[in-house]
């Protein structure tokens, strides 16, 4: 019994410590983000490369998934709307479902699977190879040069790709709304525009930024946890990716609570 309580206590302390450390690291990154001295030719070059790796290289896969998944989902949702006789809420349902919920969630899952794991492994390998020591010896701040561009890239990529997902899925919605409801392009656009809510768009934007921030920040932090052993790399990636997934769920739940308040 005492052991069980001790285990719960230890777990609670560890979780609290991890949460506190993550927030503290986040605070450091945010401070650096708004400090103009953090930016120079080298950090800008890293940022451009990161945006290319995260947002451009993923495009074929992203467009494919958006079209297949988004079109099928829109078809099903519009069919349900028609069957339930909710045609007058068509615009509101599409905007809430696609722009506020689906687009950020699908985007963050794809980017986390591809880029977060890569960032986690990259930082862990650099730690094991003593490459972080190289930066230190040449007076290069790892936060400025390595971490900040990756975090900014995470935020930009999730926001941009989420917007792109919304556009692709809303466009495919046009096809189904024409087939099922006989809506023209103009009527469909009017329905969507009249349903667009500024507050929802702000929530969606904040959610995308928060997703992008934490799915790059957490892998960096876990990459830094690697020791000098090669075997610590997979452990670091595993733990980092579990925490990324928890963070995604946590942010999603928080945003849902905010929307329903």
């Amino acid at each position: 019994m005492i052991n069980a309580i001790a285990r719960i206590g230890t777990t609670t302390i560890n979780v609290t410590k991890t949460f506190r450390d993550t927030l503290s690291f986040a605070f450091t990154i945010i401070l650096k983000m708004f400090n103009k001295n953090s930016y120079n030719s080298a950090t800008r070059q890293v940022l451009i490369h990161q945006i290319y790796f995260t947002s451009v290289q993923i495009l074929p896969l992203f467009i494919g998934i958006s079209i297949i998944f988004g079109t099928l989902l829109m078809g099903i949702v519009l069919q349900i709307i028609k069957n339930l006789g909710l045609a007058e809420h068509l615009g509101r349902i599409i905007m809430d479902l696609v722009v506020t919920e689906l687009a950020p969630f699908v985007t963050v899952l794809l980017i986390a699977l591809r880029s977060s794991s890569a960032i986690n492994a990259e930082i862990a390998v650099m730690k094991v190879n003593k490459e972080l020591n190289t930066l230190d010896k040449f007076n290069i701040d790892a936060v400025d040069y390595l971490f900040l561009p990756r975090v900014i890239n995470g935020v930009l990529s999730v926001v941009l790709l989420s917007a792109f997902f919304s556009i692709l899925v809303l466009t495919s919605g046009l096809l189904f709304s024409k087939l099922l409801f006989g809506l023209s392009l103009e009527s469909y656009s009017n329905v969507l525009l009249s349903s667009a809510n500024f507050y929802d768009i702000v929530i969606s934007l904040v959610k995308c930024c928060t997703f992008g921030f934490f799915i790059t920040l957490i892998p960096i932090r876990f990459g830094l946890h690697a020791t000098n052993d090669l075997t610590s790399i997979p452990i670091s990636v595993l733990n980092g990716m579990v925490d990324v997934f928890i963070a995604i769920i946590f942010i999603e739940v928080l945003s849902l609570i905010l929307i329903f308040i």
Partner: peptide, 19 residues
């Protein structure tokens, strides 16, 4: 103080002046 493995030679050297 090894070279950074995911950067090529020219970027490894140029990094110092750029930063």
């Amino acid at each position: 103080v090894p070279l950074i493995s995911n950067l090529d030679v020219s970027v490894n050297i140029a990094l110092i002046k750029q930063y």
